[in-house]
Simulated assay, not measured.
Amino acid sequence: MDMKAWQVQSEKERLELRARLHELLHRLKGEPNALLPFHQALALRPKGEHHLGLKTIEVDRVVGSVDRYEDFDHTFLPKTPHTLERWKRLRALQLEGVELPPIEVYQVGEAYFVKDGNHRVALAKATGQRYLDAYVIALEVPVPVEPGDTLKDLILKAEYAHFLEKTRLKELVPEAEEIRFTTLGRYDLLLDHIVTRRYFKGLEEGREVSWEEAVVDWYQNLYRPTLEAIRRLGLLRGFPGRAEADLYLWVMDHRHFLAQELGVGLGLEEAARSYEARFGSWWKRLGGGLKGLLGR
Protein backbone atom coordinates (compact mmCIF):
# COMPACT_ATOMS: atom_id res chain seq x y z
CA MET A 1 0.00 0.00 0.00
CA ASP A 2 1.51 3.33 -1.05
CA MET A 3 1.64 6.36 1.26
CA LYS A 4 -1.48 8.07 -0.15
CA ALA A 5 -3.54 4.90 -0.01
CA TRP A 6 -2.42 4.34 3.58
CA GLN A 7 -3.37 7.94 4.47
CA VAL A 8 -6.83 7.59 2.93
CA GLN A 9 -7.48 4.29 4.72
CA SER A 10 -6.30 5.74 8.02
CA GLU A 11 -8.52 8.84 7.64
CA LYS A 12 -11.49 6.65 6.72
CA GLU A 13 -11.04 4.53 9.86
CA ARG A 14 -10.78 7.61 12.09
CA LEU A 15 -13.87 9.05 10.43
CA GLU A 16 -15.78 5.82 11.05
CA LEU A 17 -14.76 5.86 14.71
CA ARG A 18 -15.86 9.49 15.11
CA ALA A 19 -19.21 8.69 13.50
CA ARG A 20 -19.78 5.79 15.91
CA LEU A 21 -18.89 7.93 18.91
CA HIS A 22 -21.26 10.67 17.73
CA GLU A 23 -24.04 8.13 17.33
CA LEU A 24 -23.45 6.70 20.79
CA LEU A 25 -23.39 10.13 22.44
CA HIS A 26 -26.60 11.21 20.74
CA ARG A 27 -28.36 7.98 21.71
CA LEU A 28 -27.33 8.48 25.33
CA LYS A 29 -28.69 12.03 25.19
CA GLY A 30 -31.85 10.95 23.37
CA GLU A 31 -31.15 13.42 20.57
CA PRO A 32 -31.53 12.89 16.80
CA ASN A 33 -28.27 12.50 14.92
CA ALA A 34 -29.13 13.14 11.29
CA LEU A 35 -29.10 15.96 8.81
CA LEU A 36 -32.13 18.18 8.46
CA PRO A 37 -34.49 16.78 5.79
CA PHE A 38 -35.31 19.14 2.96
CA HIS A 39 -38.99 18.15 2.97
CA GLN A 40 -39.27 19.88 6.37
CA ALA A 41 -37.90 23.04 4.78
CA LEU A 42 -40.61 22.78 2.12
CA ALA A 43 -43.15 22.82 4.96
CA LEU A 44 -42.09 26.46 5.44
CA ARG A 45 -44.32 27.19 2.43
CA PRO A 46 -41.86 28.80 0.01
CA LYS A 47 -43.43 31.35 -2.30
CA GLY A 48 -40.96 30.84 -5.11
CA GLU A 49 -37.37 30.11 -5.98
CA HIS A 50 -34.51 31.89 -7.73
CA HIS A 51 -31.46 30.38 -9.41
CA LEU A 52 -28.50 32.37 -8.15
CA GLY A 53 -25.93 30.56 -10.26
CA LEU A 54 -22.46 29.55 -9.11
CA LYS A 55 -21.58 30.92 -5.67
CA THR A 56 -18.96 30.32 -3.01
CA ILE A 57 -20.76 29.21 0.14
CA GLU A 58 -19.70 28.53 3.74
CA VAL A 59 -19.44 24.82 4.48
CA ASP A 60 -20.67 25.31 8.06
CA ARG A 61 -23.99 26.61 6.74
CA VAL A 62 -24.77 23.33 4.93
CA VAL A 63 -27.10 21.60 7.39
CA GLY A 64 -29.39 19.30 5.42
CA SER A 65 -29.99 17.17 2.37
CA VAL A 66 -32.73 16.58 -0.15
CA ASP A 67 -32.63 12.78 -0.11
CA ARG A 68 -29.52 11.57 1.77
CA TYR A 69 -30.20 13.03 5.22
CA GLU A 70 -30.21 9.60 6.88
CA ASP A 71 -26.82 8.58 5.42
CA PHE A 72 -24.90 11.22 7.40
CA ASP A 73 -24.98 12.44 10.97
CA HIS A 74 -25.80 16.02 11.92
CA THR A 75 -22.16 17.07 11.26
CA PHE A 76 -22.08 15.31 7.86
CA LEU A 77 -20.02 12.34 9.08
CA PRO A 78 -20.82 9.27 6.93
CA LYS A 79 -22.96 6.76 8.84
CA THR A 80 -23.13 3.78 6.45
CA PRO A 81 -20.47 1.55 4.82
CA HIS A 82 -21.51 2.81 1.38
CA THR A 83 -21.10 6.48 2.29
CA LEU A 84 -17.74 5.75 3.95
CA GLU A 85 -16.45 4.00 0.83
CA ARG A 86 -17.70 6.84 -1.35
CA TRP A 87 -15.96 9.32 0.95
CA LYS A 88 -12.75 7.28 0.72
CA ARG A 89 -12.78 7.35 -3.10
CA LEU A 90 -13.36 11.09 -3.18
CA ARG A 91 -10.56 11.68 -0.66
CA ALA A 92 -8.18 9.63 -2.83
CA LEU A 93 -9.10 11.73 -5.87
CA GLN A 94 -8.58 14.90 -3.86
CA LEU A 95 -5.09 13.79 -2.78
CA GLU A 96 -4.29 13.06 -6.43
CA GLY A 97 -5.06 16.69 -7.22
CA VAL A 98 -8.36 16.05 -9.01
CA GLU A 99 -10.63 19.11 -8.90
CA LEU A 100 -14.09 18.07 -7.77
CA PRO A 101 -17.11 19.73 -9.43
CA PRO A 102 -19.33 22.25 -7.62
CA ILE A 103 -22.18 20.94 -5.52
CA GLU A 104 -25.85 21.94 -5.92
CA VAL A 105 -27.81 23.34 -2.98
CA TYR A 106 -31.07 24.93 -1.98
CA GLN A 107 -30.70 28.05 0.13
CA VAL A 108 -33.37 28.47 2.81
CA GLY A 109 -32.72 31.58 4.84
CA GLU A 110 -29.15 31.33 6.13
CA ALA A 111 -28.86 27.56 5.66
CA TYR A 112 -28.22 25.23 2.74
CA PHE A 113 -29.65 21.84 1.82
CA VAL A 114 -27.70 19.62 -0.58
CA LYS A 115 -29.40 18.69 -3.82
CA ASP A 116 -26.30 17.05 -5.31
CA GLY A 117 -22.89 16.55 -3.72
CA ASN A 118 -23.51 15.20 -0.22
CA HIS A 119 -20.22 13.27 -0.17
CA ARG A 120 -18.29 16.32 -1.34
CA VAL A 121 -19.75 18.27 1.60
CA ALA A 122 -18.79 15.43 3.95
CA LEU A 123 -15.27 15.54 2.54
CA ALA A 124 -15.05 19.30 2.95
CA LYS A 125 -16.23 19.17 6.56
CA ALA A 126 -13.91 16.29 7.48
CA THR A 127 -10.85 18.04 6.03
CA GLY A 128 -11.62 21.45 7.54
CA GLN A 129 -12.48 23.14 4.25
CA ARG A 130 -14.33 26.39 4.95
CA TYR A 131 -15.83 27.16 1.53
CA LEU A 132 -17.28 25.28 -1.42
CA ASP A 133 -18.39 26.30 -4.88
CA ALA A 134 -22.07 25.57 -5.35
CA TYR A 135 -24.91 26.17 -7.76
CA VAL A 136 -27.49 27.82 -5.53
CA ILE A 137 -31.28 27.83 -5.75
CA ALA A 138 -32.75 30.25 -3.20
CA LEU A 139 -36.23 29.59 -1.80
CA GLU A 140 -38.41 32.47 -0.65
CA VAL A 141 -39.74 31.51 2.77
CA PRO A 142 -41.61 33.63 5.34
CA VAL A 143 -39.62 32.16 8.24
CA PRO A 144 -35.91 31.67 7.45
CA VAL A 145 -33.83 28.70 8.56
CA GLU A 146 -30.59 29.29 10.48
CA PRO A 147 -27.53 26.99 10.52
CA GLY A 148 -27.98 26.05 14.19
CA ASP A 149 -31.61 24.97 13.82
CA THR A 150 -32.63 21.50 14.95
CA LEU A 151 -35.38 19.37 13.45
CA LYS A 152 -37.71 20.64 16.18
CA ASP A 153 -36.83 24.23 15.24
CA LEU A 154 -37.64 23.46 11.62
CA ILE A 155 -41.02 21.97 12.53
CA LEU A 156 -41.82 24.96 14.76
CA LYS A 157 -40.93 27.34 11.95
CA ALA A 158 -43.11 25.36 9.55
CA GLU A 159 -46.01 25.74 11.98
CA TYR A 160 -45.31 29.47 12.17
CA ALA A 161 -45.22 29.72 8.37
CA HIS A 162 -48.63 28.03 8.23
CA PHE A 163 -49.94 30.50 10.82
CA LEU A 164 -48.64 33.46 8.81
CA GLU A 165 -50.21 32.05 5.66
CA LYS A 166 -53.59 31.61 7.37
CA THR A 167 -53.61 35.02 9.07
CA ARG A 168 -51.58 37.19 6.62
CA LEU A 169 -50.39 38.92 9.80
CA LYS A 170 -47.25 40.38 8.23
CA GLU A 171 -49.34 41.97 5.47
CA LEU A 172 -52.10 43.24 7.76
CA VAL A 173 -49.81 44.46 10.56
CA PRO A 174 -46.39 45.16 9.01
CA GLU A 175 -44.92 46.16 12.37
CA ALA A 176 -46.00 42.91 14.03
CA GLU A 177 -43.26 41.19 16.00
CA GLU A 178 -42.32 37.59 15.36
CA ILE A 179 -44.33 35.07 17.35
CA ARG A 180 -42.17 32.14 18.41
CA PHE A 181 -43.05 29.18 20.63
CA THR A 182 -40.84 26.59 22.28
CA THR A 183 -43.47 23.83 22.09
CA LEU A 184 -45.11 22.28 19.05
CA GLY A 185 -48.80 22.66 18.25
CA ARG A 186 -49.33 26.11 19.73
CA TYR A 187 -50.07 28.18 16.63
CA ASP A 188 -53.41 26.41 16.18
CA LEU A 189 -54.35 27.75 19.61
CA LEU A 190 -53.65 31.28 18.39
CA LEU A 191 -55.95 30.65 15.43
CA ASP A 192 -58.63 29.59 17.92
CA HIS A 193 -58.09 32.86 19.82
CA ILE A 194 -58.63 34.83 16.62
CA VAL A 195 -61.79 32.88 15.78
CA THR A 196 -63.13 33.51 19.29
CA ARG A 197 -62.20 37.19 19.12
CA ARG A 198 -64.01 37.49 15.80
CA TYR A 199 -67.14 35.85 17.17
CA PHE A 200 -67.45 38.04 20.27
CA LYS A 201 -66.56 41.23 18.43
CA GLY A 202 -69.36 40.45 15.97
CA LEU A 203 -71.81 39.98 18.85
CA GLU A 204 -70.72 43.20 20.56
CA GLU A 205 -71.01 45.30 17.42
CA GLY A 206 -73.96 43.50 15.84
CA ARG A 207 -72.27 42.95 12.49
CA GLU A 208 -70.20 40.52 10.48
CA VAL A 209 -66.52 40.93 11.31
CA SER A 210 -64.12 39.95 8.56
CA TRP A 211 -61.27 37.52 9.21
CA GLU A 212 -58.72 40.22 8.37
CA GLU A 213 -60.26 42.64 10.87
CA ALA A 214 -60.30 39.94 13.54
CA VAL A 215 -56.60 39.20 12.98
CA VAL A 216 -55.66 42.86 13.37
CA ASP A 217 -57.92 43.30 16.39
CA TRP A 218 -56.52 40.18 18.08
CA TYR A 219 -52.93 41.28 17.58
CA GLN A 220 -53.37 44.95 18.50
CA ASN A 221 -55.84 44.61 21.36
CA LEU A 222 -55.08 41.22 22.87
CA TYR A 223 -51.72 39.73 21.94
CA ARG A 224 -49.53 42.84 21.93
CA PRO A 225 -50.98 44.37 25.15
CA THR A 226 -50.50 41.04 26.93
CA LEU A 227 -46.87 40.91 25.78
CA GLU A 228 -46.35 44.48 26.98
CA ALA A 229 -47.70 43.50 30.41
CA ILE A 230 -45.44 40.45 30.49
CA ARG A 231 -42.45 42.66 29.71
CA ARG A 232 -43.34 45.31 32.27
CA LEU A 233 -43.54 42.64 34.95
CA GLY A 234 -40.37 40.91 33.79
CA LEU A 235 -42.39 37.71 33.84
CA LEU A 236 -40.22 35.85 31.34
CA ARG A 237 -37.27 35.86 33.76
CA GLY A 238 -39.18 33.45 35.97
CA PHE A 239 -39.53 30.87 33.20
CA PRO A 240 -36.09 30.12 31.75
CA GLY A 241 -36.04 28.44 28.36
CA ARG A 242 -39.49 29.72 27.43
CA ALA A 243 -40.63 32.40 24.99
CA GLU A 244 -43.00 35.34 25.35
CA ALA A 245 -45.58 33.59 23.19
CA ASP A 246 -45.58 30.64 25.61
CA LEU A 247 -46.37 33.02 28.46
CA TYR A 248 -49.09 34.72 26.44
CA LEU A 249 -50.97 31.42 26.14
CA TRP A 250 -50.46 30.58 29.81
CA VAL A 251 -51.70 33.98 30.94
CA MET A 252 -54.73 33.70 28.63
CA ASP A 253 -55.54 30.23 29.96
CA HIS A 254 -55.20 31.52 33.53
CA ARG A 255 -57.46 34.49 32.76
CA HIS A 256 -60.07 32.20 31.19
CA PHE A 257 -59.95 29.86 34.20
CA LEU A 258 -60.49 32.74 36.62
CA ALA A 259 -63.44 34.00 34.60
CA GLN A 260 -65.14 30.63 33.99
CA GLU A 261 -64.43 28.79 37.23
CA LEU A 262 -64.25 31.59 39.78
CA GLY A 263 -66.28 34.33 38.10
CA VAL A 264 -63.38 36.77 38.32
CA GLY A 265 -62.95 39.06 35.31
CA LEU A 266 -59.45 40.48 35.03
CA GLY A 267 -57.82 42.86 32.60
CA LEU A 268 -54.77 41.74 30.67
CA GLU A 269 -52.17 43.17 33.07
CA GLU A 270 -54.15 42.01 36.09
CA ALA A 271 -54.23 38.51 34.62
CA ALA A 272 -50.47 38.63 34.04
CA ARG A 273 -49.90 39.75 37.63
CA SER A 274 -52.21 37.01 38.92
CA TYR A 275 -50.37 34.41 36.85
CA GLU A 276 -47.02 35.62 38.18
CA ALA A 277 -48.28 35.46 41.76
CA ARG A 278 -49.66 31.97 41.26
CA PHE A 279 -46.96 30.32 39.13
CA GLY A 280 -43.96 32.62 38.87
CA SER A 281 -43.02 33.01 42.51
CA TRP A 282 -41.70 29.48 43.04
CA TRP A 283 -39.39 29.92 40.03
CA LYS A 284 -38.03 33.06 41.64
CA ARG A 285 -37.60 31.34 45.00
CA LEU A 286 -35.79 28.47 43.33
CA GLY A 287 -33.58 30.89 41.40
CA GLY A 288 -32.80 32.83 44.57
CA GLY A 289 -31.96 29.65 46.43
CA LEU A 290 -29.60 28.51 43.69
CA LYS A 291 -27.88 31.89 43.63
CA GLY A 292 -27.42 31.66 47.41
CA LEU A 293 -25.89 28.21 47.12
CA LEU A 294 -23.59 29.21 44.28
CA GLY A 295 -22.53 32.33 46.17
CA ARG A 296 -21.32 30.35 49.18
Rank of each mutant, 00 (worst) to 15 (best):
E99P: 02
L28W: 14
E96Y: 09
G30Y: 09
V114Q: 06
Y112W: 01
T80K: 13
E165C: 06
L139F: 12
D116V: 12
V105Q: 00
G53V: 03
N118M: 08
T127D: 10
H74G: 04
A122Q: 01
G117C: 12
L95N: 05
G97Y: 05
L123N: 03
A134V: 05
L36F: 06
Q129L: 11
D153E: 05
Q129Y: 02
P101S: 11
L52V: 00
T127K: 11
N33S: 15
I155K: 09
Q40S: 02
P147N: 10
G128M: 08
E49M: 11
F113A: 05
I137C: 02
Q40V: 07
L100H: 11
P102E: 04
D71K: 14
K125Y: 10
P101F: 14
R168G: 02
G30S: 10
T127Q: 14
A158W: 04
H39R: 15
I57T: 09
V114A: 12
R91D: 10
K55N: 05
K157M: 08
A43K: 14
E49H: 11
L100Y: 00
K125T: 13
T80L: 08
L24F: 09
D60N: 13
K79L: 15
T127P: 04
Y131K: 12
P101Y: 08
A122H: 06
V136Q: 01
G48E: 07
V62R: 03
F38T: 06
I103H: 04
L36V: 05
K29F: 12
A134T: 03
E70T: 07
L35T: 07
A34N: 07
L139P: 03
Y106D: 02
N33F: 09
